[in-house]
């Protein structure tokens, strides 16, 4: 086994273990941190595949931005873990059986028999001056421009949906409208009432 193989199995093992910990960790902050680890090792595996751009983007976008935001949200929310785990043991037998069956089936199909190196050989070394980023950019903006635009529309929908579902003009908020404050007249605020004088009671 060459050094690439050793590295691959090393990273793959860490990836699987951390992915497992993401769903088994009791503490949601730990789970999020394990997810960060999983992303980092995944990006290392991509690096082994010579997909440098994707590897760096994964670290920058997912680890750097998304997961940090996620951690932030997890820390702000008060998640009751015991309620989340209710019914875990009663669902486990069925879930585990289905999961195991699927794993066995996948191993049967996805083993080396059909997807081994002899079926999908390594692509030829593109040489020193080859830029992964440039090639990706070229494809993205020419051949796949339609899909690229659609992805942008999906993001737009996400923005519209998020705003529509969360933004409320709250009635109990105490924000002030400067324009209204400036425009106010004396008559709006002060009411002069003429009252007859009353005799003071002792």
């Amino acid at each position: 086994m060459n050094i690439e193989g050793v590295l691959f199995y090393f990273f793959a093992a860490i990836l699987l273990l951390s992915a497992l910990r993401v769903i088994t960790a009791r503490n949601p902050v730990h789970a999020a941190l394990f997810l960060v680890l999983a992303f980092s090792t995944a990006s290392a595996i991509w690096m082994l595949l010579r997909a440098e751009f994707l590897a760096i983007v994964l670290v920058l976008v997912y680890v750097g931005a998304v997961m940090v935001l996620f951690l932030f949200v997890v820390m702000m929310l008060d998640i009751n873990l015991d309620r989340l785990r209710e019914g875990f043991w009663s669902y486990l037998p069925l879930g585990a059986t289905v999961g195991l069956l699927m794993v066995v089936e996948m191993v049967l199909v996805l083993g080396g028999k059909y997807f081994g190196l002899e079926h999908l050989p390594n692509p030829a070394d593109p040489g020193a001056g080859y830029s992964n980023t440039k090639e990706l950019g070229r494809l993205l903006y020419t051949d796949y421009v339609y899909a690229f635009e659609l992805a942008a529309v999906i993001l737009l929908v996400a923005i519209v949906a998020a705003i529509a579902l969360t933004l409320r003009g709250r009635k109990d908020s105490k924000h002030q409208d400067p324009a209204k404050q400036v425009m106010v007249k004396r008559a709006d605020r002060v009411r002069l009432v003429s009252m007859p004088s009353e005799k003071k009671e002792n």
Binding site: V153, V157, A158, V160, A161, A164, L165
Partner: peptide, 10 residues
């Protein structure tokens, strides 16, 4: 499909 589904969820 995702475009359709996301809009429908919302």
């Amino acid at each position: 499909l995702e475009l359709l589904s996301l809009s429908l969820y919302a």
